Simulated assay, not measured.
Amino acid sequence: MKAVIFDLDNTLFDHTASVTTTLRGWLPTLAGVELTDELLAAWFEVEQRNFDAWLAGQLAHQGQRRGRLRDFLPVIGQPVPATDEELDEVFAGFLNLYEQSWAAFPDAEPALKVAKSNGWRIGVLTNGATLQQNAKLAAIGLASYIDAVATSQSLGFSKPAPEAYLLTCEALGVDPAETLMIGDNLELDVVAARAAGLSAEHLDRPAGITLLQLVPAV
């Protein structure tokens, strides 16, 4: 191996914990309701549906944020604002708390240090917006370890398109066969990466797998 490519959300960056913390603080101020498991599941469902619509080119990035609110506010008994400007103002409250809660997984920096000590090039490939994903890496203290950040927005391709993996390898200056992909999503980070010619490992955190198990010292 000459390089390793990491997914970002729920691989290096703990998106689930950050959103959970955000909703726990945001919902009482918005609707006077406390976060429940059911509301958390509902948020992630509308988040994924609207995010997928953005990846498919059906919504602008800000549009998918507005879509989340249009879908979620009725769930908590709140009226949907009539204008985009009002929706943006509501979402700004969520976003402010979300950015304050950004955190890396405890094993993220140690794994990056091992990869660096191996002499490997290090990339991040993420289905996300370039500005926000780079901001996450900077805020959680990992940006200095990364040689190339590739996003669906910057590439023009999203995982699982083979071009997403191949262009990231190209940015790192390595062949796909010399590159390991690691991520939490089995289909996007493992199956599709292998189909594009990379090696790939599944970061199955619920099963107790850690990044340090998947990034061996050589």
Rank of each mutant, 00 (worst) to 15 (best):
D9I: 14
D9Y: 15
N10C: 13
N10T: 11
N10R: 11
T11C: 12
T11L: 12
T11G: 09
L12E: 02
L12T: 07
L12V: 13
L12H: 06
L12F: 12
L12Q: 05
F13L: 13
F13M: 08
F13E: 00
F13C: 01
F13Y: 14
D14S: 08
D14Q: 06
D14C: 08
D14K: 09
H15G: 00
H15A: 13
H15F: 14
H15V: 07
T16G: 10
T16H: 13
T16Y: 13
T16I: 14
T16E: 14
T16A: 15
A17P: 00
A17W: 06
A17R: 12
A17Y: 06
S18Y: 03
S18A: 15
S18I: 05
S18R: 00
V19R: 00
V19F: 08
V19W: 01
V19A: 08
V19Q: 03
T20V: 13
T20W: 06
T20K: 12
T20R: 14
T20F: 10
T20G: 05
T21F: 11
T21P: 00
T21W: 11
T21G: 01
T21Y: 09
T21N: 11
T22N: 06
T22V: 10
T22I: 09
T22H: 01
L23D: 10
L23T: 11
L23W: 11
R24L: 12
R24T: 15
R24H: 14
R24V: 07
R24E: 15
R24Q: 15
G25K: 07
G25Y: 09
G25M: 09
G25V: 11
G25Q: 15
W26L: 12
W26H: 13
L27E: 08
L27C: 03
P28L: 08
P28K: 06
P28R: 03
P28C: 06
P28D: 07
T29P: 00
T29S: 15
T29V: 12
L30M: 11
L30P: 04
L30K: 09
L30D: 14
A31N: 07
A31T: 07
A31I: 04
A31H: 08
A31D: 06
G32A: 05
G32N: 07
G32P: 03
V33W: 01
V33C: 11
V33E: 03
E34K: 03
E34I: 00
E34F: 00
L35D: 10
L35Q: 07
L35F: 06
T36A: 03
T36W: 02
T36G: 03
T36H: 03
D37L: 04
D37N: 01
D37I: 03
E38A: 14
E38N: 01
E38M: 02
E38Q: 10
E38V: 04
L39G: 02
L39N: 03
L39I: 02
L39S: 01
L39F: 02
L39T: 04
L39P: 01
L39W: 00
L40Y: 06
L40F: 10
L40H: 07
L40D: 07
L40G: 04
L40S: 04
A41Q: 10
A41G: 05
A41Y: 02
A42S: 14
A42Y: 00
A42C: 04
A42W: 01
A42H: 02
W43H: 08
W43G: 05
W43M: 03
W43D: 05
W43I: 08
F44T: 12
F44M: 13
F44W: 15
F44H: 14
F44C: 12
F44N: 15
E45S: 11
E45W: 01
E45R: 10
E45V: 11
